[in-house]
Every structure is written in C-alpha cells, then in structure tokens.
Design a protein around this nucleic acid. Structure first.
Lengths: 340, 340
DNA sequence: TTTCAACACGAAAACGTTTTCGGTTAGCCT
DNA sequence: AGGCTAACCGAAAACGTTTTCGTGTTGAAA
C-alpha cells in the first residue's frame, strides 16, 4: 500500500526544497530546466497529485457546490441534480448532496454543516416544513457570511437571492385553458396543501383560467391532498360523486391515481374524462394511457441554477448585489390522456 | 456581511493565545473557569464554528463519502443514494455524488478527482463502458492508496473489495419459476447486452430455470437489447411473430413497453400474456396493469454499503483485509401482470 | 527562606499547498 | 579587482485547526 506522495517527500528524496518542487511542477521559469525535468519525472513516477484539502485551505475555495433538496427519490429532483452536475463538471466543480427529507431541522443542520468551509455556495429547494414555518434565518445567515445561494422551484420570496423557477401560475393557467378549449366544463383540481408554494401557485392558475372563461369555481371538485400515500380514497370519492369531465393534477401521481380509479369505473379516457398533470416524469410516459403533462425541464433548471451560482462564485467584483430570478419555460406535452 | 470568525480572531480580540481559545472551547481542564467562560461566551456571540477544511487537513479525515454511479435519473440509483445518505447522516458523514454517465473516462476522472483528499472512501457502481472494457486499474490504484471502496450492483469480480449485490441469478431463476408454475411454456426473455454484469446473470438465471424444467431454450424469444431508447420496434416484432405466453424482462422499461405493444394487439394481460420485470420502481406500481416485479430494495443496498464503508473507515486496525460480499435478499412483488 | 507542585497559559509544530522575498553563485563589464 | 546582473534556489508565511510541551506564577510545605 503506497500512500499518496506529498511535495515534502519529493523534496526530501531529490534533496531540494519544497518550493522548488512546487515551482517545477508548475513550470515556473525560475527553475532550471535540469531540476524542472528531474522533479517532473519523479512526480510522474510516483503519480503525484496535489491534495485538494490543502489547496482548499490555501485558496479559500473548495470548488464544491452544496445541493440541499427535500428528497432524491423523486424524478424531478433527480433531473435537476443531473443538470447541476453537468455544468459543475464542465467547470471543474464537484457537488455534495444533502437531503432534508422535507424536515426543517435537517435542512438547517445540513446547511450549517456545509457552510463551515465545505462548499463555496449552495443550490437548494426548500423543504415543506420550512415553507410551512416560513423560517428562513438559516438561509439569511449563510448569505450574510458571503456564501451565494441559488434557490430553485420551491423558493422563498422573503429571501434575496438568485432564483430559478418556472411560471407555475402561467403553466397551470395554460394547462387548464387547454382543457377548456377541448370543451371541458367541469374541471377538477387535485392539488397539495397551500403552504407548498408551487402547489398554491398552480391552484391560482387553475382558478384564474376558470374565471377568465366565466366558469364557476366549485369547491367540491377541488381536492387539497396532504398525505400523498393515501390519496386514492379521496380521489375515488371525487370521481364517484361528482360529474367531472376532466382533471388537472399538480403532479403525476395524483393524475395516474385518478386515471386508475376512473378506468375501474369503466370511464373512458380521454373521451369521458380528460387528464392533464404537472411535472413530466417517468410515470406519464409509460402509464396507460400516457398522460398529457406540463413539462418542467428539471435538467434545464439545474443547469441554469449551476450557471448562476458559478458565475457569482467567480465574479471578481464581489459587491454586485443584483439578484436575478430566471424563469424556465414550460411546455405542454400532449399525450393520450387528452383528446386534441 | 460578517465573514466567518476564526480562532485567531477570537484570540486577538480577547488578548489570549490561539491555544487557549481552542482549549477553552473544548472544555479543557487546563484552562481556568474564568477565561473558559469568557471565551465560550464570545464564541457563541460571534457564532464560531470550526472550519471543516482545516479540520480535514489536520485530521487527515474528511468525513465525506464519494459516490460514483452511472446516472441519477434512474429510480434504482436514486434509492441507493437515499439509503447511503441515511446512514451517512446518522454517522456524521457527508456524501459527494459524481455521475459517470456510463462513460469510462468520466468514471476515471471523477474517481481520481475525489481520491486526492476530498473523500475518505467510495461507494460505486460501474459504468457500462467500464464493464465492457474490463479495465479496473483506476479502482485498484485508489485501493492501493489505502482508500476503501464498496461496490454495489454492478461490481467487478476482478477487484478485491467489499461488495453489496443481490443474487441476480437466483432472483431471475425464481421469477421464471413463478411463470413456469403459472403454467407458462413459451417464456420470452428481454435483456441487455451481455457485458452488463447484472444482465448476464439474470439471463443465466432464466436459462437455468428453463433447463431445470426441461423447457427448450429458444434463441428466437431471447432479445438482447443494446439501445434502450429504441426498443419498442424489436419488442413489437417479438410479440407479433412469436407465440409467447409470458415475458421476463430484466428491467421495468422493457416490461412496460412489452405490455403496451401487447395491449395494442388486443392481447389480454395477464390471461394471454404474463409479465414479470426486474427492478421494482415507479413504473411498475403505476402502469396499467401494474407489473409483477423482482424488488431490489435499493435503500437497503445503499444502507448496507454505507455501513460497510464506514465500518472500514473507522476500524482502528487498518490491516484487516477480509473483504465481504453482502447479498441483499430480493422478493417477488405480485401485481396485476401475472395471474397467481 | 527555599523548594516544589499545581495551575494557567503560550509557543510551536503539524497537516500540504502556494507564493513572496531574500540570498547565493556565476559571469560579465569596467 | 570591484561591482552589477542574471539565474537559480530556499526560507518562511499563510490558510485554520489541534495538541504537545514548555514556562511562568502562585501558594504551600519544609
């Protein structure tokens, strides 16, 4: 087991100083060609690679981006990470991933953990609990210390920082419009509880679309679901008791459950019931029928977030405090669960 | 913007030495209660937190685990990361994730990058290209330097290291047995090319099951698919031309495509065609019909891998070179795509 | 009064780099 | 011979910790 070789060891072995070794490896003109080549040959032989930790300490830069997200077992977040990783990689950065598990406390712990030197900046999406408590002091503290944060998807208006979002309201509006233009009148909404920022915005888009077309807002066909695991009962009830002709769901899961319950009752999709879901993931592509969705393009969000963060990290001029909010466009992917 | 405070600054401010500050914060009995409390109060006021990088350099430990996987936009890998992160978190470790993107070169680069001090050890699953080339020198080199590696799922027999796998052969055998006991005679296999280790093992399990029941091996109903994106044509052809009564697919995707193609032709599932897939993911749970699968339990794999790695990292006795291969049990989850 | 222990604290090394600055040698010019 | 300039190299500081060892002061025991 040959441990990693250091400058000091090379210096000792070749009977020169550490500085000489360092300079030689950096092809400094200060060093004669003789010693330079000698050192380089030796370094190559022993496979010398500079120690990242030492470099980080010296440079006060880790070349590492911290990612904090609610969970990873969720296709959308996975795609965002993928996007972040792509540009991080291109620019010589590494990513260190922490999961808040939708818990405020874990989010705080992770953030503070990584803020003590481990990363140069953060890309994050808030946990549900954080959004509910509206407590963002941990973010503010990190920002005050001079670490840039880029927030995506679940962002906080209260925090001044760069952000990458989609226009949830508009996208929902367009999706519901699509259903209306298809001739649907009784459009059910299956959404989350209101403290989830994106859920709320999508609900607003739904309502706006109905209003703009003079359709009534019927609370009986608006479902706000808290517990995602046991949603099938309430959804089944909705379909059984209300004479709806279409469904707009704020995520794939709600949509696919609705479809399943409808099919059980012999309801034809899309003829009798048209379905659109938010978030274009695996499920929509492969369910039967395939589901028309609003595509969020997580990869693009991730790429954009990483670009913004790195740009800020590498800006010489520290004090340019103009925060940007980038809006990623969505598009409706038409599949079998709708008619037109 | 108040930058992070260091021991040195506290020392200067209170007019004591750095050592005194450090010892005070660690409640060393060497320091008088007076100064101890004074320092602690000051540190709390200024929210002092030790710098991780400096600690890493000093302790020669980063408390960080490197994860290198082919891709993250893949439910199985996401669950594994989730499992790793759980126990890492419990034990005070962070995880830094790199994606090889199924490329040998990227795998090498990432590994070497992180091996230079950034992490204490690795958990990884090989890229397809690496498995094809059978070139593992990068792994061997890292191991030789004294960094432990735990491999999971796509492992290399040529490398001596801890491993976490499932018994792919046995699980496939049992799945095919299930179909045979259901009364199926013409069981198609949809698998990957052979250099993917798990694909090969699952194929072997399939063949063994057929042989043990004296069923013929028919090359015409064994599909080895290279390009996962354009698999529907060949699968459609299989279903059209061969009179098969069941399908065993080595992943969810192949299974769901087969089901879709069968339904298009009016073939009833599971009555006329029974389907079992490897890898229990999102698709199987929500497709119509839901798919019977072999569950791999990625979370458990991840947890086990992390436990093994951390155990090795924290073993005082460095030279205990007994590598273990842990086999995670699988189980067949029976759903609507099979009859019994 | 001398001696010794206990107590409280500081200096310095170490981890592995990079970089500035200073120093030595040789050669060249006057 | 004296002085100057390159060319080449090394010492040391710096990043922020922890820890060992040393040192000075105090009080009490002899």
């Amino acid at each position: 087991m040959k441990r990693k070789v250091t400058l000091k060891q090379i210096a000792k072995e070749l009977d020169v100083s550490i500085s000489t070794v360092s300079k030689s490896l950096k092809n400094s003109p200060e060093i004669s060609e003789d010693t330079r080549l000698k050192v380089q040959a030796f370094a190559k032989l022993y496979n010398y690679k500079p120690n990242n930790i030492a470099l980080s300490l010296k440079n006060k830069k880790t070349k590492t981006i911290g990612i904090i997200i609610p969970e990873i077992v969720h296709h959308f977040f996975a795609t965002v990470i993928s996007g972040i990783e792509q540009v991080a990689n291109e620019q010589g950065y590494n990513v260190i991933v922490c999961l808040s598990d939708e818990s405020f406390d874990k989010e705080v712990i992770n953030l503070e953990m990584l803020a003590n030197g481990s990363t140069d900046g953060f890309i994050m999406s808030l946990s549900k609990e954080t959004q509910q408590k509206k407590d963002f002091h941990h973010l503010q503290e990190v920002i005050n210390q001079g670490m840039p944060i880029v927030m995506f998807d679940r962002v906080a208006n209260e925090i001044l920082a760069d952000k990458v979002i989609i226009d949830d309201l508009l996208a929902a509006y367009q999706a519901v419009n699509f259903l209306i233009e298809e001739g649907r009148k009784k459009i059910a909404l299956i959404t989350t509880v209101d403290y989830v920022s994106v859920g709320k915005l999508r609900t607003e888009g739904y309502i706006k679309a109905l209003k703009d077309h003079n359709l009534p807002i019927d609370e009986n066909i608006i479902l706000k679901i808290e517990d995602i695991d046991n949603c099938s009962d309430v959804i089944e009830k909705l379909i059984a008791e209300q004479k709806i002709d279409s469904v707009f769901a704020v995520n794939e899961l709600f949509a696919v459950v609705a479809i399943k319950e409808a099919l059980k009752k012999g309801i034809k999709i899309p003829e009798e019931l048209s379905v659109i879901a938010f978030t274009d993931g695996i499920i929509s592509k492969f369910s039967t029928p395939t589901i028309t969705t609003v595509s969020q393009n997580g990869v693009k969000m991730g790429r954009k977030a990483a670009e913004m963060l790195i740009e800020r990290l590498e800006a010489e001029d520290e004090e340019e405090e103009r925060y940007r909010t980038e809006v990623i466009e969505t598009n409706l992917i038409s599949r079998e669960s709708t008619q037109t």
